[in-house]
Amino acid sequence: MSDPAAQAPHGEGHHTNYVKIWGILVVLLVISVLGPFLGHPVVTLFTAFGIALVKAYLVGKHFMHLSLERKWIGYLVFTMLALMLVMVGGVAPDVLKHDGLGWENRAAKQSVEQGNAAGEAAEKAGHGAPGAAPAGEHH
């Protein structure tokens, strides 16, 4: 089945000032770098991850032309994002919690303790802590 009209690259007749979008993206990048200097975790959360979402939206809409694409392409992309969230939601309790009813992740607890101890020792010594223990399996 051939549809010559569909062969044209989308965005024809649609005028976007791409340099202006790039300028906005660069300003947002500068804000995301400067955010942590304010020293407030909530502000950093917003300037780092809130702005990342805005940047991704701008790139998706204006550079990838998602807004001009067929609607089901958007549905396809968001379905994949939803599947990712299902995976994260399903696994998160096991990874985020180190103990629960009838189980304890001793290796993970030990890893955090060792990591903190190594980090504190390295800070006192004036350098980093590359050798902190890795996270372990459930026991």
């Binding site: 994260v88 696994v91 998160a92 990874v95 985020l96 919690k97 180190h98 993970a108 890893s111 955090v112 060792q114 990591g115 903190n116 190594a118 980090g119 504190e120 390295a122 800070e123 980093g128 802590a129 590359p130 902190a132 996270a135």
Partner: peptide, 15 residues
């Protein structure tokens, strides 16, 4: 996976 482990391992900020 990274986000989940990062939240579960507060000691990673040293790294």
């Amino acid at each position: 996976s990274y986000i989940m482990h990062r939240l579960g391992h507060p000691d990673w900020h040293y790294q």
